[in-house]
Structure formats: structure tokens, C-alpha cells
């Protein structure tokens, strides 16, 4: 008799489906990471795991812990918020790093630098006074 047996069925079925959806999408993202050709294509693959992959698991966690403890347990929502806010920063920086390196090597098919290349102080997420 584990703690999972005490979860009512109406909460168990959606939680199970959400967990499977989230982990399945994360796996699909990494399959894309392995199978896709070219860095810029691969840059799209992990966003499956960071959007609905994370959301599914976080929602399942909220449902399960809330029914187990008979009160709203929302701390996992913070993980979802954290992932949503940090993923743009990391992927944007990685994309810019790749552009920078490709331009330095004059790789074909990469758009040329714009007339006013943004410096790191002008990244829109870092609000300089």
C-alpha cells in the first residue's frame, strides 16, 4: 500500500496522462536533437521539453500533491515559471554564439551581421537604465 493508492481515480487518470505526455514530448525533443541536421534546426528541438514537456509534468505534480495533502500545493508551478523565463535567455545566447562563430568562419547560408550589431548591453532582457 503506497501513498499512490490513496489518490482518487478522478485525479489519478489525468495526472498519469499528463506525466506521459510531458515525458513523451521531452523524449521527442531529444530525438529531434539527435536526428536533425544543422545547429539552427536542432535549436528548436529542446523547446518541446521546455514548453509542454515541463508543463505536463508540473501540472501532474500539482494535481497529485494537492490531492495527497488535501491543500493546494503550488510550489511546482515555480519550476514551470522558472523554465519559461530562463529558456529564452539560454537559447537566445546560444543562437547568437552560433551566429557569431559562423560569421567569423564565413560559413555559407548565414545572414550577414546587421548594420548596428547589438552589444551584450543591448540585449532586450537586460534592461540597462
Amino acid at each position: 500500500m503506497s501513498h499512490l493508492d490513496t489518490v482518487p481515480l478522478w485525479a489519478a487518470i489525468p495526472a498519469a496522462l499528463l506525466v506521459l505526455l510531458g515525458s513523451g514530448l521531452t523524449l521527442l525533443g531529444t530525438i529531434g536533437l539527435v536526428r536533425l541536421n544543422g545547429f539552427y534546426d536542432r535549436l528548436h528541438a529542446p523547446t518541446l521539453g521546455t514548453s509542454w514537456g515541463t508543463l505536463g509534468i508540473v501540472l501532474a505534480s500539482v494535481i497529485l500533491f494537492s490531492t495527497l495533502e488535501h491543500r493546494p500545493v503550488l510550489h511546482d508551478v515555480l519550476i514551470g515559471l522558472f523554465v519559461t523565463v530562463t529558456t529564452p535567455v539560454t537559447l537566445m545566447l546560444l543562437g547568437r554564439a552560433a551566429l557569431h562563430r559562423d560569421r567569423a568562419e564565413q560559413a555559407p547560408g548565414v545572414p550577414p551581421a546587421m548594420l548596428h550589431p547589438p552589444t551584450s548591453e543591448q540585449v532586450p532582457l537586460e534592461q540597462s537604465p
Binding site: 539552427y40 535549436l43 528548436h44 523547446t47 518541446l48 521546455t50 514548453s51 519559461t84 523565463v85 529558456t87 529564452p88 537559447l91 537566445m92 543562437g95 547568437r96 551566429l99 545572414p111 546587421m114 548594420l115 548596428h116 550589431p117 547589438p118 543591448q122 540585449v123 532586450p124 532582457l125 534592461q127
Partner: peptide, 29 residues
Amino acid sequence: LAVLAIIVTATPGTAWLEYDQESGVLLLH
């Protein structure tokens, strides 16, 4: 712009690469 960056990155299929503040042009993949 920060909110737009979150939207563009959170939707799989579009990636925000570069934004030029002078001309206001955004480079997407």
C-alpha cells in the same frame, strides 16, 4: 520586447537569434 522573446522562444518552431536596437529588426530562425 522581453515578453515577445519569451513568446517566440516558448513556441517551438521559432527561435529568436538577434535584435538590432537601432533599426528595430529582429532575426528569427
